[in-house]
Each structure stands twice: as C-alpha cells, then as structure tokens.
Design a binder for these strands. Structure first.
Lengths: 301, 301
DNA sequence: CAGATTCATGAGAATTATTTTCAGCGGTTC
DNA sequence: GAACCGCTGAAAATAATTCTCATGAATCTG
C-alpha cells in the first residue's frame, strides 16, 4: 500500500512537484503535464487528458489514486482549488515598486490595490482602541463638533462631518481657515474640534487646532506623523499608517487610511448610541426617497 | 439567448451572489446551496448535488448553463477555483456578519477592514481595463471636465476634481444640481461629464448626466448598479463592487471602492501625460511651501 | 373566467465519461 | 531462456451527465 509516500493531505500540485519524482513512466508524464499547465489540466476530461499525455484513461485513473484521491473528478477539483489559491496572491505582492509611465494598466491597478489595502491593514494594526473610544465618546457627548482640513484632507473632513451629521449630531465642516477660526473662538470645553492633515505640518490646520485648544475644546487630530506640530496639539491622536514603499501610491493610500479611521469612529458612535442611530438612519434614508428613480419599493411590495 | 445577464466571465460565486437573484425556483435553490457550501458543492457529483438540493440532475445541468458554463464539470472546477482563491486570504473570513451594539471595538475594526479591503479587491477584479483607459483618455483629451455627485458621492466627485485639477486639467466639481445643469447646458462634445452615485438612482445625478449627454459630451458614470438609470446613460461606465455581506459596512466599503476607481484613473492619467505631470506636481507642491511648518527643507538645503 | 401560451421541471432515454478488468508486453531474476 | 512481476492500454462495465419530452403551474389574453 504505502509504498512511496503518504497521499497529499492538501496540495496536489505541491506534492507532485516535490515527491513527484517517485512516479515513473506514464504517471510521470501525466504529472509533468499537470505541473506545466494545471489550469488547462483541470478542465480536461479524463479522455482528453489521456490523449494529451499520450496515455490512456485507465492510467489517468490510477494516477488519481496515486495522488491519494479517489476519483478523477476529485483530482480535477483539487487542481482547480490550487490554481485558484495561487492566482489569488495577485493583490498582496509587489507593493513598493515605483510606477513607470509605460507600466501596463493591470500593473497600475495591482499596485494601487495592494498599497491601499496595505494602508488599511497597517492603520488598523497601529490603532489604539482606547483613544478611538475616547474620540467616539467625545463626539457623542459634544455640544458642537467641528471638522477642519485643508486640500485633500478637507475632503476627509467633509466626509467625517457628513457622516456624523447624518446620525443627528450637531456639527460643521469648515471650508476655510477664517470660518474655522471664528468657530474656534466661540467654542468651549463642551465642543470637539477635529483637525485632519496628512503631514501634520499644514499651517492652517495647526492654527485652527491651536485656537481650539486655547478655548479648552477637546481636540482630535488625524495625521500620519505623530511627532508633527499638529499631532503635538492633540488631546486625542489618531494616526494613519506611515509610508509603505511606493511613493506615488502614498497619497491615495493615506486617503483610504484616513477614511478608515472615519469609518471606525463612525461605527463606534453608532454603537454607542444604537437605538437612536437606527431610527435616525431610517429617517435619513426616507428623506431621500423623493429623489430616487425606478426603485423597487423598500422591503417587498 | 442572453435573456437576463451575460454569463460570468470570471467568478461564478460572485456572479451568483450578485445577479443570483434573477434565478427562480429550483435554480435559486441550487444557487443558495452552492453559495452556502461552495467547497462541499464542488466535490459532489451532479446526482448528489441534485439530491441535496431536492432537484434533479437535469436541472443542475441547466443551472450550469445558466452560469455560462458548458458542462457540469466546468461548474465544479469553476467553484473549486474560487474556493481556493477566497480561502487564500485571511481577511475575507468574517465579513458578512452584522455589527451588534455590544461588539468589541476590535471586532468593529476587523469587520470594517475586511469589508473595505474586500471592496477594493472586488472592484479591481471586475474592472474593465479598456473602459478605464477610455475614461483616462477622455479626461486628458477634454477641453473641460465636470464632476457631479450628491450626498456622499459629492465627496468622491470633489476628490476626483481635486486630483484632476492638480495635474493641470481644466475641471470643476459642481456642488449643486443647478450649477451642474448650467454647466451641462454650455458643454459640447469636447467636454467630459462624470456623474457619481452609489445607487445609480439619484434623480439629480441622472438629470445632470442626461443633460450632459444631450449636449453630446462624453459621459462617465461611477456607480454600483450597472442596470441603474444612471448607468444606462453612460458612455463609459465604471462600477464599484456590489454589496458583499455586511449591510452596515456597505456604505463605507463603497466609498473606498469609488476612491479606488478615482485613484486608478488618476494614475492612468498621470501615465498618459507623464513628463507634464511630474512638472506640474512639483509646482503644486512648492505652491504649498509657505503653508508648511517645521519642515526639513525639500531635497537638501 | 376559460382557453391559450409560456416556461420551469423532473423522468427517463441517450450519450458520454470514468472505472474496472484483463491480456499483452518489457524487463528482471534465477 | 523460462518464470515472474508489474506497468500499460484496450475494451467491457459502470457511473455520471446530458438530452428529450411530457407534465403541470403560472401568466397572459380575449
């Protein structure tokens, strides 16, 4: 029975390429073919495979048995599974490479996806749950809540504001320094100011958060650099993942990281105020009904 | 022939969970079973599968055809491949669970990260590179470029505009329908209009894109639903990944997906206009120098 | 509301794929 | 060189799959 090897517990292809040398003759031929074109092999019937390898169907059946599988059909799905598994690594590989003007579009996509997902994972990993909780609580408990960012971070500020507003908390996103400074000058310790800046070195945002801090508001900062001037002025500091490899993808990756922080804080707020939020969200949704077209009615007819 | 949908080019399981609703009766039963236990399903013979689902072998064959596959054997390997693919990455496990008010913060983070990364990967996979190229080229070649979105999609529109503006293309993001309609009324075939809507059913966005189309501009649409009124009016359609499991994370996941599309188009545009972009980006960066604090001087002193 | 039509379904026949059996053949041993 | 061993493919046997078609449910139409 167990002459050569125990059958492959998982991974026919791996087993073939490793202990595959122990196969002789026709079986070896079949093994080689499968290793060369596993994807194709998994789509062939037993007869076709036999023809392609110059063997016979019966031999292919014996081959399947030699692989520790009962039927030829099992061999097929085993190979297919492994093909799928190896094909899946597309998205986790070559971050850190620069993009060149003549790179294929596929490569651009690949790099951006990996950079962005990596940023999400990295950001999540370095997250301090305690701070996060405090941020959520601060926002929930705030009388007023203010968001500020400049340039690309203005967009994160807007998103944050939109979300928080949507669940019924009084908040503003200020589109420029002056408005933000005015808001800060009228704030007090019951309020929360959120400043967002990728670098943490943007003068306007620092200025706004400084002014807010001077009025004893709770200051929250989202940035990448925890040593930056902006970060130093934060009561509660949330950091996005630091640059990982690829330069060009950095900006976009950080955007995703910032949004992830917003997502999480938002979700946490929703948790903290659960029943209220559910109701508010329903109201929000139905407030938009008149602006939707061709929609199947909500919840069956 | 093509009654409901084109067959799945890649990803039976994905196709089933998306357009799977279009299947009725016995076919639906089979689809559900496969979605529930894909790994098991791929190892069953057609007779076994028929028994388990309370249908007949013939129906299973028809099911395979409905999936765009010729033979049942093809269905098996297709499922197996996909099982292998999803089993390979660990972030795809616990998506689909609802968030409960008393879930731990760690769990919230986990779910959001998985949902978001999944959305990125899914979106990338379903991307049509050709369309993407056409979008990039259209924007590069446009006289004027306009972005419009309402609600949360307004933020994506803004981000898109910000990016494109940054590399020196004349473009606008319109904050409200009226402005957008006015812009559309003055546009012509040299211009590009980009409409963004998660659902594709937002009246305002549809209206703007319709108006733009009437003026023969090139219309680009970013949405999730390729059958939506908005999508139907698009010259060039980019779709984000459809809901994958978790309801609450859906909105945030789609936001990331939209941004990924923006990232990619942006990167592509940068490629197409390479030397120009490098220079413009340098200028953009130095334009902000006066607003940075405590920064080590760029590129040595 | 009856009749017509369409369509999904499963039963069974027809086909195809797979496995098993077995005879032949090349190599090895005595 | 004869006997044996074990691999191999041909062909028979079996299992799986597909095809055909009658049935009945559902929808449409007059």
């Amino acid at each position: 029975m167990a002459s050569s090897d125990p059958p492959p517990p998982a991974g026919v292809l791996r087993w073939l390429s490793e202990s595959g040398d122990e196969l002789h003759g026709a079986l070896k031929t079949i093994a080689d073919f499968i290793l060369t074109e596993p994807a194709a092999a998994s789509r062939l019937t037993i007869v076709e495979l036999a023809e392609r390898t110059g063997t016979s169907p019966g031999t292919v059946t014996r081959f399947s048995r030699a692989c520790g599988l009962h039927r030829y059909a099992d061999l097929r799905v085993a190979i297919a599974e492994e093909v799928g598994r190896s094909g899946a690594n597309r998205w986790s590989t070559d971050i850190g490479q620069q993009l060149h003007p003549d790179d294929s579009l596929d490569r651009v996509i690949e790099v951006l996806v990996s950079a962005n997902t990596q940023a999400l994972v990295d950001t999540a990993e370095r997250l301090d749950p305690e701070v996060l909780d405090q941020v959520a609580e601060a926002i929930v408990g705030a009388r007023h809540c203010h968001f500020f960012g400049v340039g690309t971070s203005a967009i994160t500020a807007e998103e944050f504001g939109l979300r928080v507003r949507r669940i019924g908390i009084a908040c503003w996103t200020w589109p420029d320094v002056h408005s933000a400074l005015i808001a800060a000058s009228q704030a007090d310790e019951r309020d929360v100011f959120v400043g967002i800046s990728f670098s943490g070195h943007v003068a306007e945002t620092v200025e706004v958060i400084t002014a807010a801090a001077a009025r004893s508001t709770t200051t929250v900062v989202i940035t990448q650099d925890r040593e930056s001037p902006l970060a130093r002025r934060a009561d509660l500091l949330l950091t996005t993942a630091p640059p990982a490899g690829n330069q060009q993808a950095q900006a976009t990756a950080d955007r995703h990281a910032q949004f992830l922080l917003v997502d999480i804080v938002y979700a946490r707020i929703a948790q903290l105020t659960h029943p209220a939020v559910v109701e508010v969200l329903d109201r929000t949704a139905s407030a938009l009904d008149g602006h939707r077209l061709n929609r199947r009615p909500r919840r069956k007819a």
